[in-house]
Design a protein around this nucleic acid. Structure first.
Ligand code: MN
Ligand code: MN
Ligand code: ZN
Ligand code: ZN
Lengths: 130, 130
DNA sequence: GGCTTCATGAGAGTCATTCTCACTTTTGGT
DNA sequence: ACCAAAAGTGAGAATGACTCTCATGAAGCC
């Protein structure tokens, strides 16, 4: 059995920052947010903590168009997708009920197993347009 | 007006390799394939050529789960999606007619513009399972 | 052939992410 | 509260995909 993660100042700081932020942010951005708040946390620890949270499904991860990982504490823990602003990271959680079934059906139809799907929408939000 | 790209030994070699390969491959893998064929091409040139081909929509690009770019000369030039084997890169081109309209509708409904979507399916093919 | 312009590639540079490892902190007894 | 074992931390080094630089080579054109 895996022991639960220990409660440390750093882990708490990262979790708090994520709770306050509404949009997807990179590890580096989180690190900067923490620094400016005064809850400075080592960059390596920020990366480790985010990975642990992602592993535990407490945050969602996605890759932006440059391949960087972005993290966000979503309102829902159930499976869902996102509509993300390329400019500011503003995020809307969305559902794609038909997409779900379509994905597994298509996968199985071609003899593939352990089907997983990536479905993300990118756009420019109203603010980033004005 | 942009002059058409010049026909060089390197560009031809990359295009030929892509024509022979059926699955998604990384720039580094392509570079190795070319080397073993004897049509050695500089790594920087492989990257440049692949980007140019992608820009011209002659090859499709997608990011694997590690964030690396994978390239493939697809049979169709029209917009489509892929079902890719995590193990060997084996690829099946797929369509998602309902996904297309769903994506733009959802995006617009939230006031986003220039909507783009990422839809890829990952799985394990029969060969990689045995 | 001669020329202009683009293409090439070896090597250096960039940058997000990961690793190392000596040191600190938490946790679970006692 | 005290202690030892185990996990967590972070500064800096390392990694690795990708990009840049720039001197040299090759296409396209007359
Ligand atoms: Mn889904
Ligand atoms: Mn589509
Ligand atoms: Zn925005
Ligand atoms: Zn396979």
């Amino acid at each position: 059995m895996n022991a639960p993660p220990r409660m440390t100042r750093q882990r708490t700081a990262v979790a708090d920052a994520l709770a306050d932020l509404a949009d997807f942010r990179s590890a580096q951005q989180l690190h900067e947010v923490l620094r400016s708040r005064g809850d400075s946390v080592g960059l390596a620890t920020v990366y480790r903590t985010l990975q642990a949270l992602a592993e535990a499904r407490e945050v969602d991860v996605l890759r932006n168009e440059d391949g960087e990982s972005l993290y966000r504490r979503c309102a829902r823990r159930e499976h869902h997708h996102h509509l993300v602003c390329r400019g500011c990271g503003r995020t809307v959680e969305i559902d794609g009920p038909t997409v779900e079934s379509w994905a597994s059906t298509v996968g199985a139809a071609h003899g593939f197993e352990d089907i997983d799907h990536t479905v993300e929408l990118w756009g420019t939000c109203a603010d980033c347009r004005s």
